[in-house]
């Protein structure tokens, strides 16, 4: 099953399971979703449960927050997370803070979801990875699946969660296939990392876009140098399962962080800091980060490739921390 279909299955199962769940966003209904994540759901569930919104991000995000305060469980789709910046006031000032500033009276069970990060040559305003931005605000959970099974299990947990969840998919990964449990009670708890590949000599922490790259890099390193690389996928950025990451570093003594966002004040910077706090004495080399270049995303394909993380860049980083 593809990640796209796994997300679709999660949405469908939760729509069936709880009548308070509804989906709202641009072209999610009649058009079947810009990236077809909501394919077939409007036909099956109708206008009430799957709602085409005007192109009005702040408006429908606000509508979602209010509906969640009043007991519904909205799933708000942003056609891409780049457009969520228009809705940031509702996500950050309203959804994230409502439970706290109401003294625990109004929780906001809402999922904001859609593709995050780069696609192919969609240029500066459509290529941003925003996880660090949203992870900086208390009150929001931030989730980034990298496999079809994770996509399904995490989305179901996100919809059932009583808090606002930022659910970041990756456009270029929608077609990636993987085994997905058919069980409609299959969920993956938020805040639990997954070791995507076991290894002994170096840890790569990767998420979303960089997980397949890290796995390929690990294979290459193994084949070329006989060095065994462990790939840890936190899956949830907030709350962060730092324990799994730290345990891996204590085992391998070396850490590379691969991320699609820019490096400055990134999630990788946070992980690096937490590893220093918890495993400083275990590190045999400085932590190395691979991130997107500190420039707006260019259009030209060669420049875009140069800007983004890649298997080659991750291999080079692993070689550097392993002194290969």
């Amino acid at each position: 099953m593809t990640i796209r279909d796994a997300l679709n299955a999660a949405l469908r199962e939760e729509l069936i399971r709880d009548e308070n769940v509804f989906i709202i966003g641009e072209e999610v209904a009649e058009y079947d979703g810009a990236y077809k994540v909501t394919r077939g759901l409007w036909k099956e569930f109708g206008d009430k449960r799957v709602v085409d919104s005007p192109i009005t991000e702040l408006g429908f995000a606000g509508l979602g927050v209010g509906a969640a305060m009043a007991g519904l469980r909205p799933v708000v789709e942003f056609m891409t997370w780049n457009f969520s910046i228009l809705a940031a006031d509702q996500i950050i000032n309203h959804a994230a803070k409502m439970y706290y500033m109401s003294g625990g009276q109004f929780n906001i069970p809402i999922v904001f979801r859609g593709p995050n990060g780069s696609a192919y040559q969609v240029s500066s305003q459509h290529s941003q990875a925003l996880e660090a931005f949203y992870a900086n605000f208390p009150g929001l959970k931030v989730v980034m699946p990298s496999t079809a099974a994770d996509a399904k299990g995490l989305l179901k947990s996100a919809i059932r969660d009583d808090n606002p969840v930022i659910f970041l998919e990756q456009e270029t990964m929608y077609g990636m296939k993987g085994e997905v449990p058919d069980d409609e009670d299959f969920t993956i708890p938020l805040g639990v990392a997954d070791i995507k590949r076991e290894g002994a000599d170096c840890t790569i922490v990767a998420r979303s876009f960089t997980v397949p790259q890290a796995l390929k890099a690990a294979e290459q390193i193994q084949a070329e140098f006989g060095v065994s690389v462990e790939v840890v996928d936190p899956r949830t950025i907030k709350p962060l399962d730092i324990e799994t990451i730290v345990n891996s570093v204590k085992k391998t003594n070396r850490l590379v962080i691969a991320e699609e966002s820019h490096a400055f004040a990134s999630v990788g910077a946070e992980i690096s800091h937490q590893v220093m706090e918890h495993a400083f004495d275990y590190l045999d080399a400085p932590v190395k980060r691979i991130s997107t270049a500190e420039a707006p995303m260019p259009y030209a394909r060669n420049l875009e490739v140069a800007a983004l993380p890649s298997v080659e860049k991750i291999v080079a980083a692993v070689r550097e921390v392993c002194y290969l």
């Binding site: 009430k48 606000g62 209010g66 509906a67 305060m69 009043a70 519904l72 000032n93 109401s102």
Partner: peptide
């Protein structure tokens, strides 16, 4: 009573959603 909101106009979207839920139900 659903608040008490500090951003000028921010509650207009929230109120719209509350009423949306009333109709939905």
């Amino acid at each position: 009573f659903f608040g008490g909101h500090g951003i000028v106009g921010g509650q207009i979207g929230v109120g719209t959603g509350m009423a949306y839920a009333q109709k939905y139900k």
